[in-house]
Computed example of a mutant assay.
Amino acid sequence: MTTRRTFLKGAAASGIAFCSCGLLDAAHAQPKAQRLPVMVNGKRVKTIDVHSHCLFHEALDLLGPDKDKPLPPTKGQQEHFIGVEQRLKAMDAMAIDMEILSINPFWYGGDRDLAGQIVKVQNEKLAELCAAHPDRFGAFASLSLQFPDLAAQQLETAIKKQGLRGAAIGGSVLGEDFSDPKFHPVWAKAEELGAVLFVHPQSTPELGKRFKGNGWLSNTIGNPLDTTIALQHLIFEGTLDRFPGLKIIAAHGGGYLGSYAPRSDHACFVSPQNCNADIKLKKKPTEYLNQLYFDALVFTPEALRHLVAQVGASQVVLGTDHPIPWEEHPVDHVFATATLSDKQKAAILGGNAARLFGMKVA
């Protein structure tokens, strides 16, 4: 039987950092929310949130008059700029030992010089923060993906010199899909370095007109759709066959792919004229899901059960979107999924991420 976490207060460090993303699934929280340390079957588990965000004033200042545009119009907006002590208290309240921070790309439309400056500042700041609090923070590097040659250089610097864990990327670069050969040098570099790529969508701008109206559909539908399209192109265009060693995490449970993946296996049989006969995939489209990773930000135990059934418990990692209030009790969400074994719960809470990032966990 799963042992409940003890109710201990985590120690908070001091210092200043600027961060962003996730909190709101209290509906599925236990009567008393879990606190650190997290215990599963009597064993301590290090909980690792791969989906949390940061922003840095120094990087936004480079935008001049447009420096406020990257701020999300949501609850948690100002928490993108918070002190480390406050961030650690919030993590403790959610029973999160470590956050892997990322910054949603707002620089893809910039020229080479501006994008390069923004990325340089962000990666340096992320590296400083992680070095100061190595037990609590890791980070995904930012990349100037609109300039693939520069992005490959930035990734190498981030991994080899700055100690970052990989890189955060959008769902596309201004509508250009990652399966485009122009991006191959970046994926080749990521595969060579063993760098983890975190795909975080930026809505689906092409559908902006239809997203208008009530319900914040640009996010509610647009974000998971953007991720779904990105992953499907990587599969169907043969990119994952070309770079089989790529380590990819998809935000928000991977969008809609995990919910309706089997349709992909029938598409080219039903309509071969809409498929490229020159692209011969090495396995069924759904089988590629078992080499990708997905965060557990899917809100309900049933949704998490289904995701695990589709991709395997070994491919699911914890994600919150902190400090934006999507999931306040991410650990309780995993514990509440009764279909998971204790081994699977421990893996999703932190074991899978630790293995993926090559972390040593006691």
Rank of each mutant, 00 (worst) to 15 (best):
A115P: 00
P262R: 08
H333A: 14
N352M: 11
I159Q: 02
E58N: 09
T228S: 15
F335V: 08
A17R: 03
E192R: 08
N41A: 15
A230Y: 03
G358V: 03
W187T: 00
M359F: 14
G110T: 01
R210Q: 11
E128A: 15
L129F: 08
T6K: 07
A27Q: 10
P70H: 08
L217D: 05
E302Q: 12
A277H: 07
L318D: 08
E99R: 05
L150Q: 13
P244H: 04
P181C: 09
A303E: 10
K161W: 01
K9V: 10
P105Q: 03
I279R: 12
H53T: 05
K182W: 00
N123K: 07
G171K: 01
A303M: 07
T286I: 02
S172D: 11
T227K: 09
Q291A: 03
F299D: 07
V119L: 09
D342C: 13
K43R: 13
R242I: 05
R165D: 06
A33Y: 01
P37T: 11
Q78H: 06
G64L: 03
S179P: 00
G175W: 04
H252I: 08
G222F: 13
P205D: 12
G64R: 03
K67M: 04
P201D: 08
G10N: 02
V199G: 05
K43C: 04
K247N: 02
L297Q: 12
V361E: 12
G194W: 00
T47Q: 10
K75L: 10
C275N: 06
V119H: 01
S172P: 01
E99H: 12
R355H: 09
E79Q: 15
D332H: 09
Q154G: 05
T228I: 03
L101H: 05
G238Q: 04
P272Q: 03
T339R: 11
L340T: 07
H306Y: 14
Q202I: 12
K209W: 07
R355T: 11
L297W: 08
G312P: 01
H252M: 14
D177W: 02
A27L: 14
D278W: 06
N214I: 14
W107E: 01
